[in-house]
Design a protein around this nucleic acid. Structure first.
Length: 208
DNA sequence: TGAATGATGCGCT
DNA sequence: GCGCATCATTCAT
């Protein structure tokens, strides 16, 4: 039960090609020592945003004050504000100089469910972290945590030796560019995976 | 049950 | 000004 036996991901894990890092984050556990207690979640859905040549990646618009983080140290958090009310959480990837990141789209609540419920009332437990905006809201992550080191002592990622049996891919969600790239990765056996309501219902039927 | 839309603020042209 | 890596609610069927 001790967290001691779990292997924490180091910076070298993130300092690799983004399309390798994104699927490998599935089944890993993100741990956050939040002000309201320890939060743990199992990652079940990610997306790769691969550098200046990926039209969907923020870095494709060029290096700006906001995107400078993407070009820097891998293993940092890139958190941005979107649609006037939500935040999206990313793991910065690839070596210094290459601007890329992995968006965390969905996870399963493991510890700190009561805190998540306070942040996202009305949601059933399995949907508390189902979607990038909802994940940040339930975890209490905002731009205040932008640039935090994800290999530090406040927030980190653990490999608990669990395999994800069925990794599925699809085009990335909510973007209008580069939709041919199937750079969304998810655990096909998790009901916490985000999706448009239609496909989610179909998924539940298949699983039932 | 599925499609459409309103909320709401900021970064960039 | 416009568009945005979203979500919850409303509306049509």
């Amino acid at each position: 039960m001790s967290a001691r036996k779990f292997r924490r991901l180091t910076r070298s894990f993130f300092s690799r090609p983004t399309v390798d890092v994104a699927p490998e984050l599935l089944g890993k556990f993100i741990v956050y020592n939040s002000p309201s207690g320890r939060l743990v979640a199992r990652i079940v859905e990610t997306e790769a945003y691969v550098g200046v040549d990926d039209p969907a990646c923020h870095a494709s618009a060029g290096r700006t004050a906001r995107t400078a983080l993407l070009y820097g140290t891998p293993g940092l958090a890139y958190i941005y504000f979107i649609y006037g009310m939500y935040h999206c959480f990313n793991f910065v990837t690839e070596p210094d100089g290459r601007a890329a990141a992995v968006l965390l789209r969905a996870a399963e609540p493991i510890e700190g469910v009561d805190t998540m419920r306070l942040n996202s009332p009305k949601l059933p437990e399995y949907r508390l972290l189902s979607g990038p905006g909802v994940f940040c809201r339930s975890f209490g992550l905002t731009r205040e945590q932008n640039g935090w080191d994800l290999t530090g002592s406040d927030i980190w990622v653990e490999d608990r030796g669990e395999e994800v049996k069925n990794v599925a891919t699809s085009p990335r969600i909510g973007i209008s560019k580069a939709t041919k790239r199937h750079w969304r990765f998810f655990d096909a056996d998790s009901r916490a995976v985000s999706a448009l309501s239609t496909s989610r219902r179909k998924r539940k039927k298949v699983l039932a």
